[in-house]
């Protein structure tokens, strides 16, 4: 019921030319519980009780997610490898402009690793370097990555990149280097410290980050009310990154 209403509202909003968020009348600010997502003690392993996820409201992204991409670049230091050709540059995250062929309806959204519950990249990796952490973050353990690129073949979202050259002066918190595959890791180094991923901070009005396993978390509440579509839902991968307005 609430979902139907939500969709109707958005549709009405679109018709009247007002961004969905502009309609303040029905906005309810759930009080965010202070310990919604407690910061993990540094010496404790991550637990499978949480599953991190992200809900991106495309209609509220004024720049289509460009600032999120910029924040990611800054945080992880990709995108300016000196020797790689443009098509060899790593791209952890990019904005994709989608135009429906029939309706010509167009929107732009940021696409990165979708942190699937059933990640194809993890299934195919021969050494187990492509891995899913207990808390649902999909990442590459570069220590045992042999650079076979099979995960890049397997990923439906084109989320992974291969480093084609020697690098120096990487970000200390985000190691990346020659001959290994890399991708968005939801800023694990920040999450483990109890901070938000860089891209979420760059678009606070459009993105909710939180624990998908906790029914009371802000993100779970928002998804319950508004839904959260997946890119290529047909593959049944159960992604951790969800979109509104797709």
């Amino acid at each position: 019921m609430s979902q139907i209403n939500a969709y109707r509202r958005k549709f009405m909003a679109a018709l009247s030319g007002i961004a969905a968020g502009g309609l303040a009348s029905g906005v309810i600010l759930r009080s965010v519980q202070a310990n919604d997502v407690p910061a993990k003690p540094v010496d404790q392993p991550v637990s499978n009780k949480v599953r991190w996820g992200m809900l991106i409201d495309i209609n509220r992204l004024t720049d289509g997610g460009a600032s999120m991409v910029e924040a990611c670049k800054r945080e992880h230091g990709w995108g300016n490898d000196p020797k790689a050709r443009p098509e060899q540059q790593a791209q952890w995250m990019r904005t994709v402009k989608v135009t429906d062929k029939l309706t010509k309806h167009s929107f732009t959204l940021p696409v990165m690793c979708q942190h699937c519950a059933e990640p194809p990249c993890v299934d195919v990796c021969p050494t187990g370097a492509s891995m899913k952490r207990a808390d649902g973050i999909v990442q590459v353990n570069k220590h045992i990555c042999i650079g076979c690129r099979y995960c890049m073949m397997a990923c439906p979202y084109k989320a992974r990149s291969f480093v084609h050259e020697n690098l120096t002066d990487q970000q200390p918190h985000s190691p990346r280097g020659i001959g290994t595959v890399e991708s968005c890791n939801l800023c694990v180094h920040r999450i483990d410290k109890g901070q938000l991923p860089a891209c979420v901070e760059a678009a606070p009005n459009a993105v909710i980050f939180g624990d998908l396993n906790d029914p009371n978390s802000r993100i779970s509440q928002a998804m319950k009310a508004l839904g959260g579509s997946q890119i290529r839902a047909d593959l049944g991968l159960n992604t951790g990154v969800r979109y509104l307005g797709l």
Partner: peptide, 8 residues
């Protein structure tokens, strides 16, 4: 600043 949460 906060995402809009629907309330039925």
């Amino acid at each position: 600043d906060l995402l809009w949460l629907g309330n039925s």
